[in-house]
Write a protein that binds this DNA or RNA. Structure first.
Lengths: 148, 148
DNA sequence: ACTGTATGGTGCAATGTTGGACTATATGCA
DNA sequence: TGCATATAGTCCAACATTGCACCATACAGT
């Protein structure tokens, strides 16, 4: 493992940190005031992987502490975008279900940000995102596995 | 701009958000308790681009509000890792300079995390990071330019 | 020079994040 | 069964982030 490899890795993580910041700002500019990216992301996650997950499942998926996820889903529930039902398999846990309003809000979010993303995509060499995606997935999976 | 392109972009930003989180956790696990990633990142930035920057310069580079950067550099100054000097060109602003202790602390950070990064790199197909870096730079620059 | 506006920086308050302690339920093992 | 340990979730307090109001300095147009 050469020093060069390590400094490339540093540079990659550095760029990723800044892009995450920019992406968050882009998103939040389009969400209604008071709604925050992690809230929308949880709705999106539930749509993509299916609802009925437990809060702890999602905390692991997002790599945040369980208290943070607890706070986030509580906010979503207050707004009527998700509802809790007991987990029949485990009396300690809840399952989180999307409401119709929650699905609609998630869809609105995509529709609102799509033009911003389209503008960014238009300024990038075509194929940039497709080139990034598989490598990013691989990196994420590897880092996830390394966190033992 | 097809729907597929937009959903690829969503997926890329999603992965980037999670990797940023994982990277942050990896780093903070190696920093002394109470030291936080943004603090170390600012020291790293000053080493890489040269010290003598103003806080506002750095706020822009990191895409954070100026109050956040003000808070961060104040913490670094309390720990003796940077010092402020007046800006001879502009009486409103400060310039931020690294101290010897600041440089040493930044170097220690690299040395502490390098083994973790090396482990991750060892589990990735070689060339993954090199493949990512130019695309990420491009994406970051484009998003930066789009934020007008 | 004078005045209006723009910019660098900070203090404060509201909010988000997170570690630690705690409760309740589940599971493994004698 | 009974007990020790592990796990899901929440409450609370400490701390980080950030929008807003404010001050000081700079600069542009007259």
């Amino acid at each position: 493992m050469s020093d060069d490899d390590v400094s490339t890795a540093f540079a990659v993580l550095n760029e990723i940190g800044i892009i995450a910041q920019l992406g968050r700002a882009t998103f939040e500019a389009r969400l209604p005031p008071g709604v925050i990216l992690p809230q929308w992301s949880v709705l999106n996650h539930l749509v993509r992987v299916g609802d009925g997950r437990t809060p702890l499942d999602m905390a692991r998926a997002f790599q945040v502490p369980k208290t943070t996820m607890s706070h986030t889903v509580a906010a979503l529930e207050r707004r009527g975008w998700v509802e809790f039902r007991p987990n029949p398999d485990d009396g300690r846990s809840k399952r989180v279900w999307l409401t119709a309003a929650g699905r609609a809000f998630r869809d609105d979010g995509i529709a609102s940000v799509a033009p911003d993303l389209a503008r960014i995509l238009g300024d990038l060499p075509s194929g940039t995102m497709e080139a990034l995606l598989p490598h990013l997935r691989h990196l994420r999976e590897t880092m996830d596995a390394a966190r033992d």
